[in-house]
Design a protein around this nucleic acid. Structure first.
Lengths: 349, 349
DNA sequence: GTTGCAGATTGATACGTTTCAATCTATGCT
DNA sequence: AGCATAGATTGAAACGTATCAATCTGCAAC
C-alpha cells in the first residue's frame, strides 16, 4: 500500500481558493458565503464574521470570469484607441477611466497603433471577453468590423469620429473651435488672418470653415489659407519661413494654425529669424493645447479639445444604449472645445 | 388557457449563441462542436462542415470567460503603466503588444496616472480577472500591493523600475546611457561638459554617474553638474539663461541634459538670446529621444530608451516565470539605450 | 458471418459563481 | 404548550466551455 494521500500535503500548483473552499473552512454552505459577498444583510453577524475570517485565511479572491459567466453581462468595458502615447488619447482614456470608476466598472484599454488589422483583433478579443460594451476610436473610415460586432450584440460607441449612421458617437465640434480661435484673434484687434493646415484632414476643413464664419461678420477683415502637406512641426516651420520672406505689408498679422505642431513650427521660424516678434508683429494660435504649448518660447494660445469629456460622454452613451435595449435610437454628441489664451495672441500693449 | 409559449417567438434579450445552440442546430453533440474548435482533426469532414455552417448561422462567438474558467489559466495579460499619453510608455506598450500577439495572447492596458490608489485598483481588477500575469510600471517605490498579488499566485513583473528583490524586473541601463552621451560629446571634441538634472530622480543620478565614468578617463576634460528642481522645459530654460549670463570662458562647451524637456528648454534659451549658437558654441544632448527632438529648431541629439524592448522582455520574463513554477528564481534584465545623433552635437566643421 | 479494431461521437463532469425555492431555527404570541 | 412567522441557512440548478471515459459506427480480416 502506498502512503495515504493526505500525508503528502499537496501545496502543488496552488489553485486559488474558491467560494467552496471558504465555505468548507468556515463550516457553512456555499450559498451563505455567496450571500456574505452579495447580500451581507441577510446573513447573521456570527456567521458573517466566520466567513470573512475564512476568506482572509485562504486569501480568497473572487473570480470575475465565473461571476461574469453567471451574470451574462460583464462589469468591464473595452476602449480601443489609435495611438498610445498621444496625449490627446491619454485624455480621452483618463476621462473614460474616471467615468467608469464612478460606475464601479473596470476599463481595459488597447491600442490599434493606426493598424486596422489590430483594431479588428481587439474588437474580437473584447467581444469574446464579453465586455459590457466597446468604445472605439476608429483608425479609418471603415467601420464595417465594428458594425459586425455591434450587430452581434455588443454595443459599440465611436469616439472622435464623424457622425456615423448606426452607431452612437461622440466628437469634438471643430467648426466651433475654429470660430472660437478666429473670434479671439478678432477681439484682440488682429485684422489679416491666415489659416494654416492640411485640408486632407476633415477636422482641418471644419476648423477653417469655423474661422471663416467668424471672419465674414467683419467686412474690414481679410483672410487667407495656406495649405500644408501634413501637420508637422517642420511643415509649420516651412510656412513660417515663407511668410517671413514676404514684404512686411504682405504678411498676415495673425496665424491660426489648425494644430499645435504647425503652430510650434511657425513660432520656431519667427523666433529664429528674429525679424518677426510674436505676438506684436504676428500672433499665433494653435489647436489641441498639447502640453508643449505652455512651455514654448512664447507660450502658445490654443484651442483645447474636450478630451476628458469625450471619454466620459462615450460611457454615458454606451450605458444608455445598454439600458434602452431594443428601443435604442443612436445618438450623436458633439462636445465643445475651449479657448486657452496665452502670450502668443495677447499684444503687450 | 394562455397562448402556448413557442408562439410568441421570443427574440428577446438576444442571448449570444453558445456551443449548445450550435450543437443543436448542427444535430451533433456538444462535445463534437467543442472538438471542431479545439481538435478539428478528430472529427469527420462531413460533421465539421455542418458544425461550421451552424456557427456561421448563429453568429457564434466563443466565450472567453467560460473558456478561462474551465482552463484555469487565461490567455490575456494585464499591463499597468503610469501615464497614458506619455510616448515612452506608448513604446513600452507597443513592444508588449507585439510580443503578446506573437504568442497569441491578448493584452489589456490600464493606466494608474501616477495615482497609487488607482494602481492598486487595477492590480486587483486584473487579479480578479485571473489574467495570466501582470506587467507593472510602478508609480512609486512601494511595491507592497504588488507583493500581495504576486504572493497569491499571479506573477508580477516590474517594468522601468529599480531592481526589486522578490520580483522579476526589467529596466533601462541609465548608467550606460549617460556614459554613451558623454562619450559621444568627448568624441566630438567637446572638453567642458556640464550635466543638468534633478538628482531627486534615481535615473538622473545614474545617468550622471555614467557620464562621469566616461569623463574621468580623460584628464584634460572638466565637468560640472547643475541641479534643477524638476525636469521641465522651463527649468531647462532657466538653466540655459543662467549659463548664457556667464562670461564666455566660464561656459561649458557641451551640456548633457538628463532628459529631453530640459534639453529643449536649454535650446530655447540659447536660441532666443542669440548669443550662443548650437552646437558651435555649446552642444546639447538630451535623454529619452521624444518625438520633438527631431523637429526642434536645431534637431536634438538624444539617448533613446529601449522602450519597445522593455515591453517585449517583460513578457519573456513573465512567461518564463509561469513556466518555471515553484522552481522559479527572479531575474533582472537591464536593457541598453542607444545614441541618436542629430545636429545639436555635431559641429558644422 | 463473426470478431476485432480504429476512428468518430457522445454524455457526464467540473470549473466558480449566483440565484432561488425549500428547509430549518428561533422568537413572540395566545 | 402550541403555533404562526420572520429570518437564517441550505442545496440544487444554471451559465458556456473542455476533457475524457464510454459508447457507437463501419470496415477489414478471418
Amino acid at each position: 500500500m502506498t502512503k495515504p494521500l493526505q500525508d503528502r500535503t499537496i501545496t502543488g500548483p496552488e489553485r486559488p481558493a474558491s467560494l467552496k473552499d471558504v465555505a468548507q473552512l468556515a463550516g457553512v454552505s456555499l450559498g451563505t458565503v455567496s450571500n456574505v459577498l452579495n447580500r451581507p444583510d441577510v446573513v447573521s453577524a456570527k456567521r458573517r464574521r466566520a466567513v470573512e475570517a475564512a476568506m482572509k485565511d485562504l486569501n480568497y479572491v473572487p473570480n470575475l470570469a465565473a461571476r461574469q459567466l453567471k451574470a451574462g453581462l460583464s462589469t468591464v468595458l473595452g476602449l480601443i484607441i489609435v495611438e498610445m502615447g498621444n496625449p490627446f488619447y491619454g485624455g480621452v482614456t483618463l476621462g473614460a477611466t474616471q467615468a467608469a470608476a464612478a460606475r464601479e466598472l473596470g476599463l481595459f484599454t488597447a491600442s490599434s497603433e493606426l493598424d486596422a488589422k489590430r483594431e479588428v483583433q481587439y474588437l474580437e478579443l473584447f467581444e469574446q471577453q464579453r465586455v459590457r460594451y466597446i468604445l472605439l476610436v476608429p483608425c479609418g473610415v471603415d467601420t464595417s468590423a465594428a458594425r459586425v460586432v455591434a450587430d452581434r450584440g455588443t454595443p459599440v460607441v465611436l469616439l472622435d469620429s464623424l457622425d456615423t449612421p448606426g452607431f452612437c458617437s461622440v466628437g469634438a465640434d471643430d467648426f466651433t473651435g475654429g470660430k472660437l480661435a478666429a473670434e479671439h484673434l478678432i477681439e484682440q484687434g488682429y485684422e489679416r488672418i491666415t489659416v494654416v493646415g492640411d485640408p486632407a484632414h476633415a477636422q482641418v476643413v471644419n476648423r477653417h470653415y469655423g474661422a471663416l464664419a467668424a471672419i465674414e461678420n467683419y467686412p474690414n477683415l481679410t483672410s487667407s489659407f495656406i495649405r500644408t502637406h501634413g501637420m508637422t512641426v517642420s511643415e509649420g516651420r516651412r510656412v513660417g519661413e515663407e511668410i517671413a520672406a514676404r514684404p512686411a505689408d504682405h504678411r498676415p498679422d495673425a496665424v491660426f494654425a489648425t494644430n499645435d505642431m504647425l503652430a510650434i513650427g511657425l513660432l520656431q521660424a519667427f523666433t529664429m529669424l528674429r525679424t518677426i516678434r510674436v505676438p506684436d508683429d504676428i500672433a499665433i494660435i494653435g489647436y489641441d493645447d498639447i502640453e508643449f504649448c505652455a512651455s514654448a518660447v512664447v507660450p502658445l494660445s490654443s484651442v483645447a479639445q474636450p478630451s476628458l469629456e469625450i471619454g466620459a460622454s462615450a460611457i454615458e452613451l454606451a450605458e444608455a444604449e445598454l439600458a434602452d435595449g431594443e428601443t435604442h435610437v443612436h445618438q450623436r454628441k458633439l462636445l465643445q472645445p475651449s479657448l486657452v489664451i496665452r502670450e502668443s495672441t495677447v499684444g503687450s500693449a
